[in-house]
């Protein structure tokens, strides 16, 4: 038993160690450039269709990229900067709907569906694996045969 599991245990330990180092190292940097780089991707270019500040070359997008760095150097937090742009351009500058209300729907709907689907799948698998393998009743066999033939 232990012999069989030994290589897997060793692998698990190795992976866990590497993941700890990786997570610790991948903490987002707090430098102005790193913060601005992240924020640029979170905000829409207000004069473009479907482009973020990071992607756009429009003069307003350049001005905003410059402006957000100045604001960061002046000590404003990311939230304050986003709030300032929302006041100017409306909520649509945020590419990630993140406040309550209807925005919850965007996040909640797929997550609820995935969790519910996953739970249903697990429940079905557990139910199936608990009941012993059935031997099909003759009418089941007949149903299968009919269905296979494509006959009513």
């Amino acid at each position: 038993m232990t012999r069989r599991w030994a290589p897997w245990l060793a692998l698990a330990v190795l992976v866990a160690g590497a993941v700890v180092v990786l997570v610790a190292r991948s903490q987002p940097s707090g430098s102005v450039e790193a913060r601005a780089g992240r924020l640029e991707r979170e905000l829409a270019c207000p004069v473009c269709t479907g482009e973020s500040l990071a992607e756009s070359n429009a003069p307003e997008a350049r001005a905003m990229r410059e402006d957000m760095r100045e604001r960061m150097h002046a000590g404003q937090s990311d939230d304050e900067i986003v709030a300032a742009y929302v006041r100017l351009y409306g909520e649509r500058v945020k590419l990630r709907p993140d406040d309550g209300g209807v925005a919850l729907l965007a996040w909640g709907l797929p997550v609820v569906a995935l969790v519910a689907g996953g739970a249903a799948l697990v429940a079905a698998l557990v139910r199936w694996s608990r009941t012993p393998r059935l031997h099909a009743a003759p009418e089941d066999e007949a149903l299968v045969a009919r269905a296979r033939e494509g006959r009513p």
């Binding site: 207000p46 003069p59 307003e60 350049r62 001005a63 410059e66 402006d67 006041r87 100017l88 351009y89």
Partner: peptide, 9 residues
């Protein structure tokens, strides 16, 4: 540099 445009949104 569009700074005025940005100031007025």
């Amino acid at each position: 540099r569009s700074r005025a445009a940005l100031a007025f949104g």
